[in-house]
Design a protein around this nucleic acid. Structure first.
Lengths: 217, 217
DNA sequence: ACCTGAACACCGTTCAAGT
DNA sequence: ACCTGAACACCGTTCAAGT
């Protein structure tokens, strides 16, 4: 018997906890009823379906991140900060990355878009190009995020899992014929050593450098 | 009773057909046994599990695309061609985008990486930066692809579905307070009119412009 | 109005039994 | 060796029945 009738807020929070603890596959309606000591009806009364629940949980996480907004004099620095904020949030909650990359128009990302758009304006990118540039940047951030999420598997085995996985791929790559795959063969070493966050930032910088060429003259 | 015992190849092809016809949710083991007039054992004998099947189907599609390789004198043009080839393939088979963005180290993408790496070399990008630049570009392409895939829903309602969906989001955006969300409010118009392929190419061009700044001096 | 929980219609996967 | 298909252990979702 439920001690307290769960509000929508409590339900979404419990879902977030399950997702953080066990990854995407850990969120089942059954697990949720057990954790909340309640029945299916109580959940379905506050939530349309499982998708709704997952989306609401993702919105929550993102909203919390963006409130720690970056205010910076230099628009380039601020843009890096915003991108990195989203990266770190998804790094901490991999399932959010998967969800957002499925639904990049969620209200939760509105503030992100808005920030990027304004900063592009500050960088003197003309209006016409701003839309495409913002879209490309968001796509890039979510693309990286989704892959980090996928690589993480079910949320278990945080760091060792990643290292093992990369070592495995690097192993495969280094066994390739260097005549046929010179670049990939060479890249195997880098793959083993690379830092996700650094590589992400390098990508952002490439983007920013490209965007700088769109500057109105 | 099966007229012909299905080989792995036949099974993967049938899976691809189901996915193309009805999207990701249409691939069920049950549907596959019906289409192939066979039992579960016949399938599990040639395939480890459903993930294996999905991955094999995605590999097939990508392999077929990359054989139509682009040979171009200008590395920038060639890079655009390679990126666009992947984009179009995923546009035609949205489920491939979702699968690849989950597993971007599949062998199927090796040739893609290799092409990008070589072309970056041709563009005089120094070795150190090539790895990060190639990763960023691939992430971008797959990021866009995954979102197009998600937006497509279950594979039904190809073009009208997309138009309706974008119109809906644009509607929401244009209703936002222009004081609080000037950029997003403005972007609503662009969203309604924009062409996915054009926007994708614009993003690639931003990338290439950024990469040009990495050129060794 | 709000909640319970048995029941329903699905999944992916296994495995004794057949050929 | 290769395949069959009933059975198993799960899903998400519904809805008559309770309070």
């Amino acid at each position: 018997m439920a001690v307290l009738a769960p509000s929508r807020e409590v339900i979404v929070q419990a879902a977030t906890d399950l997702l953080d603890e066990g990854g995407e596959s850990a969120l089942t309606l059954r697990a949720l009823t057990i954790r909340l000591s309640t029945g299916y009806g109580a959940i379905y009364h506050h939530v349309a379906d499982k998708n709704d629940l997952l989306a609401a949980a993702a919105d929550d996480v993102i909203a919390r991140v963006l409130t720690g907004a970056v205010v910076d004099a230099d628009p380039r620095e601020a843009l890096r900060g915003v991108a990195l904020g989203l990266f770190d949030a998804i790094d901490a909650h991999p399932w959010v990355g998967a969800e957002l990359s499925r639904q990049p128009w969620r209200p939760a990302l509105l503030d992100f878009y808005e920030s990027v758009g304004r900063l592009l304006h500050a960088l003197a990118v003309p209006e016409r190009a701003r839309f495409d540039a913002a879209g490309a940047l968001v796509n890039y951030v979510l693309g990286v995020a989704a892959q980090n999420a996928a690589r993480r598997g079910r949320g278990r085995d945080q760091e060792t899992g990643r290292a093992d996985f990369l070592a495995g791929v690097a192993e495969q790559w280094s066994e390739l014929d260097p005549g046929r795959y010179p670049f990939v063969h060479e890249a195997a070493t880098r793959l083993r050593e690379h830092d996700d966050r650094d590589q992400f930032l390098t990508g952002v910088d490439i983007f920013l450098a490209g965007i700088a060429t769109l500057r109105r003259t």
